[in-house]
């Protein structure tokens, strides 16, 4: 059998499976309901924006302006993909200011999606546009976690970027670890690279499958599994605590991670 024959047979089965599984009446009904909900939501959002504009206008009319001369105003984004929600402002195209404990400015290079996504209470994620599963997650006030399923703090890691880098490099589930000094936005820190040890336990639950856990905050977690590799840059950011910049990929080609470097180099902390 050649690839063409296999492709045709696989397609025939995929079509048959879809035809058997799809309930077009139920799905059409869902689509009409979703459409109605979106319309109602859009009307509600427009009304809320109108109310906010009116209230702002009244408040500004009553108060003297407090804007700093010469500083461009920040535009609060709608909760859209581009600006990512109320925590993200877009002062310029391709630039995103994220309201983390230490405000983070992200400038997306050409190989990244033009948008960022909040990750938990003090993190943000950005995704590559030239790969289906590669990106960078920045986590401020990152908590180093135990090697179990609890996602709870491991006190052995200490409380500084340097101690956490050494702790990470010594995790029992990692091999080929390296720790090297780096500087980002004028802040000295450490970059830890490693691979998951073959056969290592992955005890901690995470969105698309369990991992050997590394860092967490509420709503945002990091770790290793066989198809999730990455490296970590750790910095002591004033106001942001120990900040972890996790450069990751779920693609088999781990060298894709190198393409994240321009994004990381452009990060700026307030």
């Amino acid at each position: 059998m050649n690839v063409d024959e296999l492709g045709r047979a696989a397609a025939a089965e995929a079509r048959r499976a879809a035809a058997d599984a799809v309930d077009s009446v139920r799905m059409l009904d869902q689509l009409h309901r979703r459409s109605r909900n979106r319309t109602a939501g859009a009307i509600a959002a427009a009304a809320a924006i109108l109310v906010a504009i009116v209230v702002s206008a009244v408040v500004l009319h009553d108060k003297p302006s407090t804007r700093v001369a010469g500083r461009p105003p920040l535009v609060t984004s709608p909760p859209a993909q581009g600006c990512g929600g109320p925590l993200v402002h877009c002062p310029n195209p391709g630039t995103f200011v994220v309201s983390l404990p230490a405000a983070l400015t992200v400038t997306t290079p050409a190989n990244f999606e033009q948008g960022v996504k909040p990750c938990g209470t003090a993190g943000v994620e950005a995704f590559r546009n030239d790969s289906d599963g590669t990106g960078v997650t920045v986590i401020e006030r990152a908590v180093p976690v135990r090697y179990d399923r609890s996602w709870s703090r491991d006190p052995a890691a200490g409380t500084t970027a340097a101690s956490m880098a050494q702790w990470l490099a010594a995790r029992p589930f990692l091999i080929r670890t390296s720790v090297k000094p780096v500087t980002l936005d004028g802040i000295s820190g450490w970059q830890v690279s490693a691979d998951l040890k073959p056969g290592a336990r992955v005890p901690a639950p995470k969105g698309f499958g369990p991992v050997a856990p590394t860092f967490a905050i509420e709503g945002c977690t990091a770790g290793y599994r066989s198809n999730l590799s990455g490296n970590y840059t750790l910095l002591d950011v004033p106001g942001g605590g120990v900040t972890v910049i996790w450069s990751w990929t779920i693609e088999p080609n781990h060298s894709l991670i190198a393409g994240n470097q321009a994004f990381i180099a452009a990060l700026r902390f307030a």
Binding site: R15, V22, S24
Partner: peptide
């Protein structure tokens, strides 16, 4: 919709995986 849906689900299934095809 009724004419195209099954084919479109099959198409989405092979490109994105069956879990999120629909």
């Amino acid at each position: 919709y009724r004419r195209e849906l099954a084919g479109l689900v099959a198409f989405a299934s092979v490109l994105a995986g069956p879990a999120c095809a629909e």
